[in-house]
């Protein structure tokens, strides 16, 4: 079945909200992930450290250049993601809706190329 990447679009620099805000969000998001596992469509996923923890590798004159930070400075960044295995876009969008409700953040739903990601 086709795979979809559900990306959590996180605003700001990744500084987490205060615990009383974050705690219910994490609980709800975990519940959606467990539901994905129970439904048998969860492939992989998780939450990411803020972009400040990123290292970017760039090709340069046949060498690889290391840059401290994310690949692009942006108002929004990838806060986390889930890869799911569902029959079609409608099914992927249904999971996306549940993640929007849980995270209170925008979710990008994007299809993988056919056959990619399966070695």
């Amino acid at each position: 079945m086709p795979h979809y990447l559900l990306t959590v679009v996180q605003p700001g620099d990744g500084t987490p909200p205060p615990p009383e805000v974050l705690e219910p969000i994490m609980r709800d998001t975990d519940a959606v992930h467990r539901a994905m596992v129970d439904a048998g469509c969860w492939v992989f996923g998780g939450g990411l450290h803020p972009p400040a923890a990123a290292t970017t590798l760039r090709p340069k004159d046949g060498e690889v250049l290391l840059v401290d930070g994310p690949f692009a400075e942006a108002k929004e960044h990838v806060g986390g993601f889930s890869v799911i295995d569902v029959p079609d876009l409608d099914a992927a969008l249904d999971w996306g809706r549940r993640l929007v409700a849980a995270t209170t953040l925008p979710i990008e739903v994007r299809p993988f190329h056919d056959g990619s990601g399966t070695p």
Binding site: P2, P87, D88, L89, D90, V109, R110, P111
Partner: peptide, 14 residues
């Protein structure tokens, strides 16, 4: 039209 049909195909709009 090409772009829209491409999305229907690639994203598997049912």
């Amino acid at each position: 039209l090409v772009r829209a049909k491409g999305k229907i195909r690639d994203a598997r709009i049912p």
